[in-house]
Write a protein that binds this DNA or RNA. Sequence first.
RNA 1: GGGCCUGUAGCUCAGCCAGGUGGAGCGAUCGGCUCUUAACCGAUUGGUCUGGGGUUCGAAUCCCCACAGGCCCGCCA
Length: 503
Amino acid sequence: MHWADVEAEKIDSKKPLIATGEAPSGPIHLGHIREVLTGEAISRASDGDLILIVDSFDPLRRSYPFLDDSYVDQIGKPLSEIPCICGEHDNYAEHFMEPFLESLDELGVDLKVKYAHEMYAKGDYEDATRRMIENRDKVAKIIEEETGRELDDDWFPYNPICSRCGEIGNTAVTGFDDPYVIYDCGCGYAGKADIRKAEGKLAWRGDWPARWWILGIDCEPFGKDHFASGGSWDTGKRIIKEILGSEPPHHVVYEWIQLKGEGPMSSSTGVAIKTEDMLKMVCPEVLRFLIMNSKPKTHIDFDPGLGILDLVDEYDHTEDIYFEGGDEDRSRTYELSQVEKVPEKKPQRIPYRHLVNLVQIYEDRDAIWDVALNTGQIQEDRKEDHERFEERADKVKFWLENHAPDMVKFSLKKELPPVDLDEDEKTFLESYLKSLEGCGWKGEDLHRLVHENADETGINKGKAFRSFYKILLGKDKGPRLGRFLSQLEEEFVKQRISEAVSS
RNA sequence: GGGCCUGUAGCUCAGCCAGGUGGAGCGAUCGGCUCUUAACCGAUUGGUCUGGGGUUCGAAUCCCCACAGGCCCGCCA
């Protein structure tokens, strides 16, 4: 059984509510998407509803490498209250959420978004906050027991936002006069915060169980960081039971996604690929496949270089298995990888690695498609397959320009590159040039002539092919020669050969 | 110090939850397509399942103990 179905079975609800969370303190990367897609897979498997809670009311902790110096002044303020970086969004949090939500839409993820700052503003947290404050000592004891740390005597489960300096958590709470939390701020201001409004928030350890309770969360996937002993899961599950009198959700812990050779993804270290960039280099169903194909607790080593080709090949292979009615789990993985529904007919496709060559040879997309039709690689000219092909070609292009290793890249040299041909090669090329007289400039003929001339002049065949790549691409290797040559202007090729021979 | 995960073919991993004669892909090797390869087809090759105990008629799978690696433990997915 697929892991999503296994988890779905464990949830004690017919129409479960599955929660995911994101903190928009920086660019949202591939690692974050695992949380949402893990939750989404379970919601599909359980026919549940998916929500995404945005920690937009959390303060900016520090200045990140991607922020300019002016943001130092914003440290300590809630993300929802900080100006947008580019100026085009309502606030800092929205700046990072917008592209992420767009990506989720492209990935076919159907969810409701809840912003923490709006929940606080609407008073959703009022009851939970009151209970936490009234049970301050019990909550503190749970945290101390689970973490083994000792909390300060003035620890308070609710952090007011200073109404003068706007900072959160820089306050010392001096009293509670329901519904007002009385505080002294480090900036010198003394005031009170209304727990029915967005004038402060629960500390994370209490905030998390509070939201389970408020929203009635049945299941939540979360990262391994929360699951460390004494972590927020350990305290959260006790707080919801002992303070709020309810059960914690079914939990699913997932592992980190690492960038091959560079360690775990993290916005602050810069080891990250933004979600929107991911979707420029692979199709959404392939990105989904990356997540669906690994159990949440397995860590994923993501290789944006050559690994992309393996990933797509594996996706395609899984597609074959699905349409052949093979292996149940892999078929399920394929279903869950789909952005929408599974295609009605098995998609016809050009092998991905081959496509990588084709987009470098042909400038014209239609030419590629026509060749694929002519060679029988694509048997029926279907609209949906053509669209998929166009999409893949776009992704391949982006990948070639941004992530592909040099070994797979080539480009036609407009001028004769510096070459050092020996006599064998020159003799061969000369002979080849002569044999081109009256040739129809067809791929297969051009290819046959390479073999014939190589045999006649006695040159090693590999060397014969290499000589073409050297004078055309400035490399030792390249795409299949005959078809490649046939795409080029006849005069251009002839000119290049004679130039090379006489150099 | 605590926690989670991983250790299976040269490489990447599946199989473990519900124990029943070890799998896939890639690679390599060989062959084919008068077509070089990074494309395609076919075949072959491949492993004391990290080690040691235990439970069992039977263990890659369950239990215990080691060893090695990765990550997490204010906030962070």
